[in-house]
Write a protein that binds this DNA or RNA. Sequence first.
DNA 1: CTGAAAGCGCTAACAC
DNA 2: GTGTTAGCGCTTTCAG
Lengths: 347, 347
Amino acid sequence: MNKKLSIVDIANQLNVSQTTVSFILNGKAQEKRISVELVERVQKFVEEVGYKPNSLAKSLRTGKSNIIGLMVEDISNPFFASIARMIEDRAYKNGYKIIYCSTDNDTDKTKDLINVFRDRHVDGYIMAPPEGIENEVEMLLKNNLPVVMVDRYLPDIATDYIVVDNLASTHKATQHLIDNGYRKIAFITFSSMQTQMADRLQGYKKAIKENGLKEYVKRIKFSQNQELIVEPLVDYLKKHPDIDAILFGTNHVGTCGLRAINRLGLRVSEDLAVVSFDDYDVFELSSPSISAIAQPLEAIADNVITLLLNRLNSNTQSDKQQQITISTHFNVRSSSVPKKTPVLPLS
Amino acid sequence: MNKKLSIVDIANQLNVSQTTVSFILNGKAQEKRISVELVERVQKFVEEVGYKPNSLAKSLRTGKSNIIGLMVEDISNPFFASIARMIEDRAYKNGYKIIYCSTDNDTDKTKDLINVFRDRHVDGYIMAPPEGIENEVEMLLKNNLPVVMVDRYLPDIATDYIVVDNLASTHKATQHLIDNGYRKIAFITFSSMQTQMADRLQGYKKAIKENGLKEYVKRIKFSQNQELIVEPLVDYLKKHPDIDAILFGTNHVGTCGLRAINRLGLRVSEDLAVVSFDDYDVFELSSPSISAIAQPLEAIADNVITLLLNRLNSNTQSDKQQQITISTHFNVRSSSVPKKTPVLPLS
DNA sequence: CTGAAAGCGCTAACAC
DNA sequence: GTGTTAGCGCTTTCAG
């Protein structure tokens, strides 16, 4: 129906040239001093027949696709899903569409995906990068394609990024556990050298060291399969029955951790204090409810898309990179109330 | 770097014609009886210089974009996020990319989005349709664009679709509550006439009627904003303190329902049995854990993408529509254990 | 103010 | 077996 009209059709029917139509459609009427009446006539006609420019042809010609590539670790993780959702909204409102994909934190997969995106001529990239894609990102930058990192960044490469103050957050959470009388505090995390995980670990270590306590760090290999995370956790907790509190490094480990705790028949809060990074429904609705470090999703998404849109609108690639750190909010709940059994003094 | 090469460049450098290169690259070498050595030479060179065909130009020429448009209600809802994730994986493996968007169940927004997708020349559509987009969908079909519905369908239009047996599922869940001694069972749902919600309501009503009980149906307006759902729920529960069990129509109402129950200081299972449609972490990890009707996400996603890929590969639009209904799995947990207080006999 | 025309990179008749 | 070439629909330079 309305699919066959092209700019030449409408030019012919109106007895004007394509150029004129094109100028009018692209808001260059004034600049080109096209008569107001012609402009109106064209616009009216275009409206009537429901003509839509073919964006493929447009992209081919202009090199702009109005598509943003979004690469997250896993779109089914509520943290990324929420951010993606907000980014999507803002992008649509600004005339951009999103192509997304989940990297699974897999370097090779991500490299492939970057190629797919380049191939599609996406105008800009938003990514939560896995390790080892420095070269690819540099290539993008070199080609003047804006890249905004989120959640983590590549330390060796100067890009825009939006992260939260991971170190301060886990430091505070750990200190909170210590203040509430816990002494054998484990930090359970993914075995990853990515910046966000490294910082979270440092925050924990710092608090532990400052209080002269002993570190209990358990690293687990990232996996989509929950069982592959729950099982090592069960083992670890069995092996360390003296642990009296756990700080989980992400919502995913946190959720699996709760499963492990359930499976062992342990009771959160009574037997074991729990705090997790990343807040979401599960933690709020658990009983006892789980203390969690909430990332300000909306602020993150807003900053990301604003930054990218700015880059897109002004070809100022060479500008100084913007690197924004946002504070988290620590939601204290029942899972980390002050310890009831004898509290050891700090040495 | 590798962005400037076009097919003509590589043809020139190799002293062959574009056609030849194009044929080779598109696997038509045999068909066109191009010499094996030439094929190899070209492939080797292409490999070396890292030439990638420009898919925009390709799409413009062929009318195929290798993009699938995915429209769900809300990508941040775990049900849709999980399905999207699985669809994404399968699509990528088959050379398709996904453009997605959240409809918010908003008819106008969805119409816009369909236009955006058409404009992008997506090859196929997967959608969880809101009400009132019959005309748009018919238009797509008329233009021979495959559309697969998921989660719900438009009763007046013959399309492929994948749904679960909603009616049987809620019927079973309601009967389960009755069997366990509950007599004042509420069904809390979104005020929607969409097929999946209508069927779930019917399943509940059927079981209630069969047992000569009274219906308690509460409909709530769909909203992203949790508070707008929790509040009416709190009111409703206050007004009907005699209700002894609730069946929630979706995970979203279910989650909000748990909040409402918490807010009122009611205890799940002791004061109120609970079952929800859609299983996910929250229900499994709550304590008491919440009985839930689990949709087989993987089976749904698999069927959806298989169906669509089939359509895409064989231009058999006129084939009979495939309409697949999959069974759910009822996960019985602690929230709906047999009632302890005096159980009224069924009349 | 408006029109002709040169491509953007690729595919596929059609000719040789 | 291989080369020529006409577009796909649009933007934009350059001439009127």
